[in-house]
């Protein structure tokens, strides 16, 4: 077992993990933060996307020991301090950017990462950025709309969902 310490959503946490412990398992099983989902466990679906030192990564394809000392952000930390939804979360609600909701934590984290590096993405850029996030319900149009809206852009031109 190895000791790891990191911040998760700004809060210092630590624990004992095995070499094989994935970051997503540390979050879900050790910290009991189950907002980050495991969809496929094979790096395909993106439901487990979190931010490590500000960059979107698949938490099922990174070992917990590699996050030692890092600043991790998860879906649980996305809401504003007063409990209201973040701009991205609110946009997903307003534009019905989810149905079953299983992929949503990863979608929101990827969307937040995209808007940080590209505050006004085009529709094409949004769709390309979401290549590693799979949704089996929505057909993506409303997710793209939500992200366009979260960036303060007109969503009228996006295909009807």
């Amino acid at each position: 077992m190895t000791s790891v310490s990191m911040t998760v959503n700004g809060k210092s946490v630590s624990g004992e993990v095995e070499g094989r412990t994935l970051l997503v398992d540390f979050l879900r099983n050790d910290l009991r933060m189950t907002g980050t989902h495991v969809g496929c466990d094979t790096s395909q679906c993106g439901a487990c996307v979190v931010h490590v030192d500000g960059e979107a990564v698949k938490a099922c394809t990174m070992f917990a020991v590699e996050a030692d000392g890092a600043a991790v952000a998860t879906i649980e930390g996305q809401a504003n301090a007063d409990g209201s939804l973040s701009v991205v979360q609110q946009a997903f609600q307003d534009h019905h950017g989810l149905q079953c909701g299983f992929c949503t934590p990863g979608m929101v984290m990827s969307a937040a990462a995209l808007l940080k590096e590209n505050p006004k993405p085009t529709e094409g850029e949004i769709r390309e950025y979401l290549e590693g996030n799979i949704c089996r319900c929505t057909g993506y149009h409303n997710i793209v709309k939500a992200i366009m809206a979260a960036s303060g852009q007109d969503v009228a031109a996006i295909a009807a969902g």
Partner: peptide, 9 residues
């Protein structure tokens, strides 16, 4: 290569 999250690792 891959997707954005893969490229970050």
């Amino acid at each position: 290569i891959g997707d954005p999250a893969v490229r970050n690792r």
